[in-house]
Design a protein around this nucleic acid. Structure first.
Lengths: 154, 154
DNA sequence: TGCGATTAAATCGTGCGCAATATATATTGC
DNA sequence: GCAATATATATTGCGCACGATTTAATCGCA
């Protein structure tokens, strides 16, 4: 007679939920990046888009969307803001006018030189050992791929 | 002569950044929770607020803000929506009219019975062992406290 | 060749997340 | 008592994040 009432029906505790740990670490990262990125004039999501472009330039919007797992509804206005800042160009591909190709300007590429400083600055704030950081990053990537796979099925 | 030019100035790779792993796992969680929470009529942040209230009811807005690390600019409209759904009440404390006390309604409290199902559903999608989940949650909590501490200094 | 299906991006509406500011209440110092 | 200060929440504005829809270009194929 331990089955129906107690046990399984206890609501979860916030601090035991993995999803909340991820959620709140994500917000903490957003806050931690705000000050260092202010010097570059970028928001945190804009910075992640620039990181993607510094390693692979001249790509379609959907390619960026795949790498960052964001859709055009998020990326289009964000990219327009980066274009207005003079960091990149958006132009239709002439061989297929549906595609919009994103290319860094010299200014946008040059901004990459400051990125290492930001990474170093955040690295200090993380407070984990290099080994822990590597492990954590890998485990989170595995977690993401599992969540994505489960979502694709549903 | 290896110092000034090369080495430190390489922009980071997206998939090696811990911040991006956290960011994108967070988005994946948001997507994973959408379907199970739709049955409860809640968004993911609304669900986290309810989780906090199921374990500690009758609290000030700022208490919720401390537990979730969210400010009134986020919580006030979110709580108003939950109030409009009939899940909670917002009333000024009579001993200090600056304070707004959040109390679950019977409907709000009853909704907690369905939370275990949601947790179970997400648990399947996580795809990590119980031990890994515990470790990951703990490491992320440590990470968050480091990032918060670094932010408080700056 | 023509025309429905598919693909790529843009648009629209809603709900966070947060900095900056405003408002109202409470406390403190004199 | 009452002005100065502190505290608690609310408001405003901006930038994501994303589902749903729209627009436009290309592809498939009879």
């Amino acid at each position: 007679m331990t089955e129906p009432s107690a046990g399984a029906c206890v609501p979860p505790e916030l601090d035991e939920l993995l999803c909340f740990a991820v959620y709140s670490a994500g917000l903490a990262f957003t806050r931690a990046y705000r000050a260092p990125l202010e010097a570059m004039g970028l928001t945190y999501p804009q910075y992640l888009v620039m990181v993607a472009l510094w390693s692979e330039d001249g790509v379609m919007v959907s390619r960026l969307g795949d790498r960052l797992s964001l859709d055009s509804g998020t990326l289009t206005p964000l990219l327009k803001r980066l274009e207005a800042m003079g960091l990149l160009e958006r132009r239709r591909a002439q061989e297929d006018e549906r595609r919009v190709i994103i290319s860094l300007t010299p200014e946008g590429r040059a901004l990459g030189d400051k990125a290492a400083d930001v990474t170093r600055c955040i690295g200090n704030a993380i407070g984990l050992s290099p080994g822990e950081i590597t492990d954590l990053t890998g485990t989170l990537q595995r977690l993401r791929s599992h969540l994505d796979a489960a979502g694709r099925k549903a």
